[in-house]
Amino acid sequence: MENRKLRKADFYTSIILFALGLFMLVQTFSIPMTDSYAGVTNAWYISPALFPLFICPAIMLLAVLIFLRAVKEEGFANLIHLKTRKSQEEVNQYIRGFAVGFMIISHVYVFLPRTDFLLSTCFNLMIMMSAFYLEQMSLLIKISVYYLLASLLVIVFALMKASIPMVTNEDFVFLMDIYLLISITAFLLFCSRLVTTNLQLKRKLKQVIILSITLPVILCPIIKYFFLIPLPVEGIILEKMDNIRYCQQDESWIECLNY
């Protein structure tokens, strides 16, 4: 980052850091200093507040020093009014960075706790790989919007579930998995329509689809059965995988799947 932009960023971050230090300091004051806690009478020097009382003012002091440095180098007025023109490439970088952040947040906070791990991983890989590997800004925006809508629908379903007490967690996960399967299928149709005219993009999309499906299918059993790590949500697919894994020898595949 160029120096002027860096100082402008310092100017604002120092204010945020000062506020953080102050907020934590106020919180620290609520920790007992000399009162008794859990039957033990405190002295100031063994209080749990002692260490944060050293750290918070130090953060505030350093934030002030960064602030003063920014003001000294650029001048207060300049920092307030400094406007920087962004090139098209910079704007594109912002959009790409924002899209990555959004896709990770959405995967972790929306899909992962509510849907089958294998399905959510597959969907996330499909979205991220196609958004960035197809290398077209218009496609990236369209795919991001698609992911946003899919995430919003999950949130709406989760809110609706809270208002209907009859729906159990298992039922909800099952419904969400069905929804995710539909979303994945719709996404594939949506993407294949977007790239119909371009042969190179078609080839890339094919690679994305193969990778995003095969990777979770290989990875999940390794984690679950080899490393013995139970996955966050085991829904429609992972349950079937369990059925096959623990199937008796004398039973047919159909019987195993229908446990």
């Binding site: 991220m128 590997y133 994305v208 139970p230």
Partner: peptide, 25 residues
């Protein structure tokens, strides 16, 4: 562009696998 989304998934598994806590994520 193909490799990094896989790293996202590995990061998720890496953070979760310790203590099997979604809160870590």
């Amino acid at each position: 562009e193909l490799f990094m989304p896989v790293i996202v998934i590995l990061c998720v598994i890496g953070s979760y696998a310790l203590g099997f806590r979604v809160f870590n994520l």
